[in-house]
Design a protein around this nucleic acid. Structure first.
Lengths: 234, 234
DNA sequence: AAGCTCATTATGTCTATATATATAAGCAAT
DNA sequence: ATTGCTTATATATATAGACATAATGAGCTT
C-alpha cells in the first residue's frame, strides 16, 4: 500500500505518512525518519517533505521539535474548525429566504455586568439592539447586541431597520480580536416568544465580543432556534 | 506604519499585510499586488511572500485564485478553531484532579435511531456504556456511548471500569472520519442526577460519531455540567 | 553524582529558480 | 449571443542549497 514513487507531491507524501500512521507502521509516540531521509525515500526534496510534515503537525497528527525530530502523537488533539459566517449567508446557503427585523433600538447606560464583561467605564452610554433573523419566515436567530459607540460614533446614526448590525459592523469596523463562546441557555419569556418556543427550553447560544486594537467594540448574544446544531466533519 | 525593511520573515510579511487590511490600505474586495511585486517591495522572494499569503488565506482573510490574484475578503469568514482534547486532558489542564467512573455497561441490540444514525443493520449487537467524568469530584461530563464491535471485537472484553472508552478507542482505533456536533439539550432525570442539577436544565451537549474507513465505530453523547462554555479567541 | 561545555543534528526558514496549472480576457467561429 | 480556442498571467508547487536555531547527548570537570 502506498508505494513511494517518484515525483510525489506534498499531498501524496501527506497521504502516505497518514496511511503509515493509521497502519501503525509508525506507531504512536515513535519517531519518524528525518526530513532528509524521507526526502530520499520519496525521491523528493526536504522542502517538499517539510511542507507535508508541517501541515500534518498543524492538523494535530505529529509533533515536531528541532533536533528532537518528528513524533507521532498518540492522542491526536484534533482541531475542529468551524466557520462562522454571517447569519444571512448561513441562511442563504441552505436555499432558504433570509429576512431581518429590528425589534428594539435604544441608547442606554451600560448595565453593570456589561461594563465588567467588556471592561468599559460604569454608566457609559451604549447602543442596545435586539433583532430577529428568519429563514423562510421561520425564526432562526434572536440577536441581542450592545455596541460601544466610543470608537465608532457613526453607529449612533446608522440605520438598523433594514439590515443587521453585524452587516454594518463588518463593513465599518474590522475587528482585531474576537472572543467566541458557545453555551446552552434556558429560554426566558422574550427569547421563547421570538423563537416561537416555550420558556425554559434549552437554547444553543453564541456569545461574541470583539475588540479593535484593545478597545471593546461590541458584544452579541445570539440565540438559535430550537433544533439548531453546529456541525463539523474532519 | 509597518515600513517594509529588508530581510523580512514570512511572519513579518503576514503582519504587514494584516495591518494594511485593518487600515484599509487594501480595502475589502480589492486586489493585492501580485506575489512578484510584493516580493520586490519587501525585498524578499516570491516563495516567502507566497507562504505569508497562503497562511492568511487559510486563516480566512484573503481569497486566492490562480490568475485572478489575491483579494481581501470583505466579510472575513473567520474560522474558529477548537481543539478537542480528551476530557481527561481538558480537566488536568485546569489543574483540577480528574476522576472517572463507569456507570453502566451493557451489550444490546442497536436501537432503531442508532441504526439509522450510524447506518448499521437493525438489531446488530452494540456495546453501550455510560460514564462520568469528574473534576475535583464535581461532575464535569456525563458520557453516553455506543460502540459497534464489528470492526473491533476486542472491545467486548476490554475493561472500562478504570478508564474511559475514549482513552481505549484512541489507542486501538485511529479513526479516519469524524462528525462533531454541538447543541443544547434539556436535562432528563438521569442526566440531571449525574450532573447534579435539575431536570429540564439546559445542557451543552456534544455528539460525535467516528468511522474507520467507512465503517461506523462509535457514537458518543457528551453532556457537560451546567455553566460549561466552549470558548475560543482569535 | 552532579554540573558544565560543546559538537552534532533535526527542524525552521530564506533565497533563487523553474515548471505546472488554472483561468480571465480577448478573439474567432458558429 | 453563444461557443470554442488562444494567450497572458497569477498562483501552486517543486528543486537545490544555505544558514539559523534549538536541544540532545557525549565528554569533561568538579
Amino acid at each position: 500500500m502506498a508505494a513511494p514513487r517518484a515525483n510525489m507531491s506534498y499531498r501524496d507524501i501527506k497521504q502516505v505518512v497518514l496511511d503509515r500512521i493509521h497502519n501503525k507502521i509508525w506507531a504512536p509516540d515513535s519517531l519518524l525518519p528525518s526530513e532528509t531521509d524521507l526526502a530520499e525515500e520519496f525521491s523528493s526534496t526536504r522542502t517538499t517533505v517539510n511542507r507535508a510534515l508541517r501541515e500534518l503537525a498543524e492538523e494535530g497528527y505529529l509533533e515536531r521539535k528541532r533536533k528532537a525530530g518528528t513524533r507521532v502523537l498518540n492522542a491526536p488533539v484534533r482541531k475542529a474548525q468551524f466557520s462562522i459566517p454571517l447569519v444571512r449567508d448561513e441562511i442563504s446557503e441552505t436555499g432558504a429566504e433570509y429576512r431581518y427585523a429590528l425589534v428594539e433600538r435604544a441608547v442606554m447606560p451600560a448595565p453593570g455586568w456589561l461594563s465588567a464583561r467588556m471592561n468599559i467605564p460604569q454608566g457609559r452610554d451604549v447602543l442596545h439592539l435586539r433583532c430577529m433573523h428568519y429563514a423562510d419566515n421561520a425564526p432562526f436567530q434572536y440577536e441581542v447586541r450592545w455596541i460601544v459607540p466610543d470608537s465608532i460614533p457613526e453607529v449612533l446614526t446608522a440605520d438598523f431597520s433594514r439590515s443587521g448590525p453585524n452587516d454594518w459592523l463588518v463593513q465599518k469596523v474590522p475587528f482585531t480580536n474576537l472572543e467566541l463562546s458557545f453555551l446552552a441557555t434556558k429560554a426566558d419569556q422574550a427569547v421563547a416568544e421570538f423563537l416561537d418556543t416555550q420558556a425554559g427550553d434549552p437554547i444553543f447560544t453564541a456569545e461574541r465580543i470583539t475588540w479593535l486594537r484593545g478597545q471593546p467594540v461590541t458584544l452579541a448574544k445570539l440565540f438559535f432556534a430550537p433544533g439548531y446544531r453546529m456541525t463539523t466533519h474532519l
